[in-house]
């Protein structure tokens, strides 16, 4: 299990946060309970299994919703 933090463009609607949360949760290999969208900080945090999914996959899923990804960090 690794911990990822993805920095997004500034989020301005709370429903955006919910969209992103659902999109990341839907990825196979992402720990569902761990997904947290920090609305004010415009960050997404989650735990994931690096053998099943990568941070790039999550970034792609978020970008597909129309949100710009500014950067990401992975910690063990």
């Amino acid at each position: 299990m690794k911990k990822a933090t993805i920095q997004l463009e500034t989020l301005s609607c709370p429903s955006c946060a919910q969209k992103i949360e659902n999109a990341v949760k839907a990825l196979n290999g992402v720990e569902r309970e761990s997904v947290k969208v920090l609305f004010n900080a415009s960050k997404v945090k989650f735990d994931f299994d690096e053998e099943k999914v990568s941070v790039a996959d999550a970034e792609k899923a978020i970008a597909a919703l129309g949100f710009e990804v500014k950067g990401s960090q992975v910690k063990n």
Binding site: C13, Q18, K19, A23, A26, L65, G66
Partner: peptide, 16 residues
């Protein structure tokens, strides 16, 4: 409409 559609895809009924 695009935002509404994207939200629907992830099962969210949004204001959009």
């Amino acid at each position: 409409a695009i935002q509404a559609y994207q939200a629907l895809k992830v099962k969210v009924v949004s204001i959009d």
